Computed example of a mutant assay.
Amino acid sequence: MLASLRAVRHLLDSGTARVLVSDLDGVLRVFDQGLWDELDAELGVDTGSSFRAILGHPYLDQVTRGRGTHARWRELAVEHLVAAGAAPGAARHSVDRWADTPATVDEDVLALLEDTRAAGTPVFVFTNGTDRVPAELAQLGLEAVVGAHGEHLINSADLGHAKPDLEAFGRAHKKIEHHVGQERGEHGRADRERGEPLHLRTDEVLFLDDSPRHVAGARAFGWQAVLHPSGTTGD
């Protein structure tokens, strides 16, 4: 088991965290990083062009904040590749191939999330995602992790802010408080009877992410955070 997952288990066992939050891309689901070189070679463009056109496109910041769509992002990626020298049809094919290439679920991370929830600790997934995330998770069979109706999924596209913005962590924290107050504990029920929301201290949330910037943002907000090694920085 990776040191990051051992660290999370240790912190959970110590009782310092009441909630576990995991990133999605690069943590729970992973992608084949060799695909970028394949796409560049097929298109006959400079190395790194496909990555810059897709995950490096500035429009992605709008998509992950709910101000743009996955479909429009793909269109702009095609335009970027055409400008880089790719033929239009080949560019569209490559972007479609990237979008339709299935991810792989990290079984160690999945086991950690499942074991944590089974032990009584609420678990959430927090992603800088797009409007397509719910369908993608259903395709991977992860409904049990995020809930049948996505109640344990925190998607930046729904929040209007994305990691590492402090506002994103603030809104995510409020959503967690709401669900934990509804679903778990005598404390949550007592608070509801008094008409008060559950108060969850920021340091009672433990966060796992593969981005140093996102981990730094979480810590600045007050969450405990563990950096997870990954081959992707797409989320």
Rank of each mutant, 00 (worst) to 15 (best):
V133C: 05
R117A: 13
D131S: 07
P88Q: 02
V105S: 07
A90Q: 03
D96L: 15
V109W: 09
P122T: 00
R132T: 10
V125F: 04
T104Q: 12
V95F: 11
A90L: 06
D96K: 13
T130Y: 11
A118V: 15
D106I: 02
D115C: 08
D131E: 13
A99I: 15
S94H: 14
T130F: 09
G120P: 04
A86S: 07
D106L: 04
T130Q: 15
G120T: 14
T101I: 13
L113K: 01
D108A: 14
A90M: 06
T127R: 02
V123Q: 00
E114M: 11
A103M: 08
E114N: 09
R92T: 01
P88I: 01
E114W: 07
P122L: 05
A90N: 01
A91C: 01
A111D: 10
T130N: 14
D115E: 12
L113W: 00
T121W: 05
D108P: 01
F124E: 14
D106F: 05
R117F: 11
A90E: 01
D106E: 10
R97Y: 14
V109L: 10
E107D: 12
A91M: 04
V125S: 12
G120Q: 14
T116E: 05
W98P: 12
D115K: 07
D100M: 09
T121C: 03
D108F: 04
A103K: 09
D106K: 02
F126E: 04
T104L: 13
A91R: 01
D100W: 09
T116P: 00
T101H: 05
V133P: 00
A86Q: 07
V125G: 06
T101G: 08
R97A: 15
A118W: 05
G129N: 01
A87Y: 07
L110E: 08
V95I: 11
D108T: 06
G120A: 09
G120K: 08
P122G: 09
D115M: 09
T127Q: 04
G129I: 08
T130E: 12
